[in-house]
Design a protein around this nucleic acid. Structure first.
Lengths: 166, 166
DNA sequence: CGCTTCTTTCAGAAACTTGTGAAGTTAAGG
DNA sequence: CCTTAACTTCACAAGTTTCTGAAAGAAGCG
């Protein structure tokens, strides 16, 4: 039934997933366009798309794609590839994307911890507020250590189940 | 030297911490006012403040406090108390606030997983895109299980170190 | 070495978010 | 009961964010 203007796959199903998942990422605090680009890549056949393809699927200008990709590259959620002998760039998701993202999250945690440490110092470790903040700090330190181990275990778990993909 | 207009504690140090930590929460995707209210409570002496106190410290209207608190209560980061025999309400952070927040995060994860599952179905589990999404789904399912255990271990760890506070 | 194709940057318009003041609602206390 | 203190809701204004079109900047290819 969806054979009119067939684009290679069920374009409508892809789009529905992309927009739905992107919306949830946005709700969790991610920039809208970055979320849409990321979701589109995730759902793509090869895991990589060109700027033009992304623009076409998401109905946005090249400028918007450029901005989104810059952000995603910064937080290591996509990598850029240049096909040798072409000005065309491809943007790719890795299957260990989430690992990377979580690793990066680590850096955020570190900054939080620093702020909390300063808070404890300036309120005084003996004050009730200072103690409360110290406990929060302890939680984040614990979390940080555990997350590292958790990701290690995930890699093993995944390798068994999926074989080590890219 | 900061004894002029002493408010009970070093108001400036408190404010500096509150605004700094709130800014980082905002960066991580939290609503600005909710972040400021939460940080203020965290740094407070008793861990609880009235609407009026919050308004005074943060220099905002009662309406703004009301909105922020509604959100924070929804995501279980503060609880409301009514002092018996008073129309005044107090908002409190618990020291297991982050536990609660993470538990709630769980609900978010569940929604993500549902979306991913639908994505796998509609793209087809045999397609490359479908497989990629399935792996992401597997990651989140793994993460969800591990987070539960992690929080359990944290509680033990904390009880040893801090004694079980409220 | 210039042409062409692709990407990036930038200023501005549109859309959305967020906080305010004012009016409305609830409930304590006389 | 009526008064009054406290919280909530709502419409709107101010401030941000976000996307676009246009122009400028790289880099292959003839």
């Amino acid at each position: 039934m969806t054979e009119s203007a067939e684009v290679g796959r069920d374009a409508e199903a892809v789009s529905k997933f992309v927009e739905g998942f992107a919306a949830q990422l946005v709700e969790a605090g991610m920039q809208r366009m970055a979320a849409r680009v990321f979701a589109a890549l995730l759902a793509s056949d090869s895991g990589a798309m060109t700027s033009a393809e992304l623009g076409a699927q998401l109905q946005v200008s090249p400028a918007a794609v450029s901005g989104a990709v810059r952000y995603l590259a910064q937080v290591h959620m996509v990598s850029r590839e240049r096909e040798p002998g072409s000005r065309r760039e491809r943007y790719r998701v890795h299957s260990d994307q989430w690992y990377e993202a979580l690793t990066n999250r680590d850096a955020v945690l570190k900054r939080w911890e620093q702020t909390l440490r300063e808070g404890v110092d300036s309120l005084g470790a003996a004050t009730p507020g200072g103690q409360r903040i110290a406990e929060t700090l302890a939680f984040f330190e614990y979390l940080e250590g555990e997350l590292g181990k958790l990701m290690e275990r995930w890699r093993e778990h995944r390798d068994k189940e999926f074989g080590s993909s890219s």
